[in-house]
Design a protein around this nucleic acid. Sequence first.
DNA 1: TTCAATCATGTAAACGCTTACAAAGCATAC
DNA 2: GTATGCTTTGTAAGCGTTTACATGATTGAA
Lengths: 337, 337
Amino acid sequence: MPDHPPHHATIDDVARHAKVSIATVSRYINRSARVSPGTAARIEAAMTALAYQPTSAAQKLAGGKMNTIGLVVDEISGEFFQPMLRGIQAGASDAGYDLLIYSLRRTNRAGRYALGEKNCDGLVVFADSLPDDELCRLSETSFPVVLLHRSSPSGFNIPCVTIENKRGARDMVDYLIEQRGYRRIAFLRGHEGHEDSAWRETGYKESLAAHGLEYDSRLVGYGGFDEDIAKETVTQWLRRGITMDVIFAADDDSAIGAILAIKHCNRHVPQDIAVVGFDDIRLANYLDPPLTTVRAPIEEVSRTAVEKLVEVMHGHSVPPVTLLPTELRIRQSCGCC
Amino acid sequence: MPDHPPHHATIDDVARHAKVSIATVSRYINRSARVSPGTAARIEAAMTALAYQPTSAAQKLAGGKMNTIGLVVDEISGEFFQPMLRGIQAGASDAGYDLLIYSLRRTNRAGRYALGEKNCDGLVVFADSLPDDELCRLSETSFPVVLLHRSSPSGFNIPCVTIENKRGARDMVDYLIEQRGYRRIAFLRGHEGHEDSAWRETGYKESLAAHGLEYDSRLVGYGGFDEDIAKETVTQWLRRGITMDVIFAADDDSAIGAILAIKHCNRHVPQDIAVVGFDDIRLANYLDPPLTTVRAPIEEVSRTAVEKLVEVMHGHSVPPVTLLPTELRIRQSCGCC
DNA sequence: TTCAATCATGTAAACGCTTACAAAGCATAC
DNA sequence: GTATGCTTTGTAAGCGTTTACATGATTGAA
């Protein structure tokens, strides 16, 4: 008896074993039409006997649906990433989709984006990981896309899901002014193109204005969503003798940098200068002092993005913008106790 | 002019546009054979003109290779996960593979594993995310698999990549005994099935033995690789009046729990009881006091696992076990300063 | 009893590629 | 000028599914 190389069972094998046609097997597998109970049982038996597993590539080719959602990120890093992926994976899995991750810092071949229309049924695009024109191109072919932590390029109407950045920042600054009585409030902004940062800054400005405090550009610096950059900026401030009651960092990482800079200059948080952040990463609660921050429901947002994407893929329409609420997390770094 | 639904360009369209056969286009795309410069230029032009992109499903079906590596994890969580994914993605991307993530806490349909032979060219399996028999089944069909943070089921010879757990733990305990002079050293173990934990415990025991210290089972408890569990265990110890010089936690999360428990009982770290961990998660350096721990090169290990997997997929043989070295990170929680 | 409707199943044509094989073009060597 | 070999290209057969359409069996109503 010739023992062939372990050729994996195909749908033909199952059909033969169950004495039906491959069409019937396919129908049974996909529940795409009724098959009689007897036949169903024979097919089921054949499948287990042969340890049959559909070849997804063939299903994709023939069926036209990939059953795959793509996630585009620029880089896998930051405290941000894990809850995001967790949410995305959960959403995809619940909807019965596979997840393909495109990390564009490491694009495969010669700038040509390997992602997209042919290989996924839909795409979740994180922040500014994809240039606007690419986004527009995808949108024009009416390929399902949902944006995460950014809004649609103007003129287009790509649904987006993110958190209430402006509101969160506004709440935080309101709190600092109203409850803590601070007047000189510095702000550490994030990346240039990053919308989260821009909205948070807007919330900051609105709160100042609402309380009759003047916006002072010397109190706004670049934190880069990065511990080291923020540390450098704050150190410069302190060296130049710029004074402030509190530093509102656009994210927790830069808040950490701010705390470090203050300590390095032998000043105390929050007695000399208070510090607050945004995101509520795990670290926040373990810092010394524990960091007052705005909790961003990252996992929920990501999961929601996938849910919206699935809607779009099913041809339903979804609201152009979905915002999830934030929440103040008051700890010691703001001087509350 | 009838405007068809935006039918995506196929290889046929490109071939027609470039006035060559599809075979030539395919050869050009895959560089699988020489094509004359003139032809190449026409094909290239046609591809950009039509914004052509190969359909991966078709390539997979026809070519027999998926160009996809699967990563099997049980859950997307823990500080551990991000560096791991980062390493895996980097490795896969460098080797020109896509990455598919199987999170088995959320298996798709009725226990039938959708992963594997038909849909990836190879699999990286993390720790105990897959039962042994499943692993064996895969191995028997000589499907390329590499294990991450676990060893091969006995009788099989599946390559594995992990860190020098035993050696790392041994180094740490040696240090605690020789440099710090501790004698009563408690150990917080991790999950039952988790090999990392088992090896670390072995290293702990070996060091004790090598220094003529007796193994005291009352000083070994369950930390569960989890902050809360560890906290509970240590709290119990302290309540029962069990004394120790230092607690060696099998991972940093349980070390955090230990520190919390000690503080809750109004004792001081490291003056009353020192604490050390394992992994060197980001948090470690920000704790109060900063945590002495063993650095586990998680990202490098993951990346290496993919590299080994690619070797296996290419039919090369790889060493059955690859261990990456750890490194002591001495900070304040061990009482060094 | 007969005709239509319904149901379960089979047949065969895609889906968009890769690749073995064949053919054609064109030097080179005799 | 013909045989030889190399290079470039084309032809066509799959790869393992899904699904439109066809078929035969069964049922129910007239």
